[in-house]
């Protein structure tokens, strides 16, 4: 769902940037639809910003749920795929002035999930509203897993160097 589908809209953002900049001083500032032109923001832009904002909150181990992570693990190994996907686990719906975001996360063990979700929601909304000017109507967070400290040991064991020459 969060696949980069709308590539045609990205080109128009740069051309209308001037109009929004001129408008910034006069009216409400971050208006996307102005009399001198319209600014469109692609889904990818919104999902990347939301992904970065969610991931940097303390207590988030990583983004994505079971299926997204399994697919992401394969995707990272494909040459030319561009490495880890920033917007993994994020799906967005973007309208002309509003956006809605769904985020899948894996929380760290010991973190109160309700407070963590509040923190994520706050950071995602602030980042999105500041960087895109879109009004964020909702941020749905689903916690798919909790990362235990013992999980690290299990993951690191296969990476140990071989003991025999």
């Amino acid at each position: 769902m969060s696949a980069p589908t709308s590539t045609s809209t990205t080109a128009s953002t740069s051309s209308t940037a001037v109009a929004t900049k001129q408008d910034a001083g006069t009216s409400s500032g971050t208006q996307l639809a102005t009399s001198q032109g319209r600014t469109t923001i692609a889904d990818t832009v919104v999902s990347k910003i939301a992904g970065m904002a969610a991931r940097e909150v303390n207590g988030v181990y990583r983004l994505g749920g079971g299926v997204a992570r399994a697919f992401g693990a394969i995707r990272e190994r494909i040459p030319g795929s561009g490495g880890p996907n920033v917007s993994q686990g994020v799906s967005v719906e973007v309208g002309e002035t509003q956006a809605a975001v769904d985020i899948d996360i894996v929380a760290e063990y010991g973190v109160p999930i309700a407070d963590l979700a509040t923190g994520i929601r706050r950071n995602v909304i602030t980042s999105l509203e500041r960087m895109t000017g879109l009004e964020v109507v909702e941020v749905n967070i689903s916690v798919n897993d909790v990362h235990l400290p013992t999980d690290d040991d299990a993951e690191q064991q296969p990476q140990q160097p071989s003991r025999v020459a």
């Binding site: 940097e56 010991g110 994520i120 950071n123």
Partner: peptide
């Protein structure tokens, strides 16, 4: 219970 304000990059421990 890990009480704190969860902020980008840090946590203010003991407050909610």
């Amino acid at each position: 219970a890990g009480a704190g304000v969860y902020l980008p990059g840090r946590r203010v421990a003991g407050l909610a």
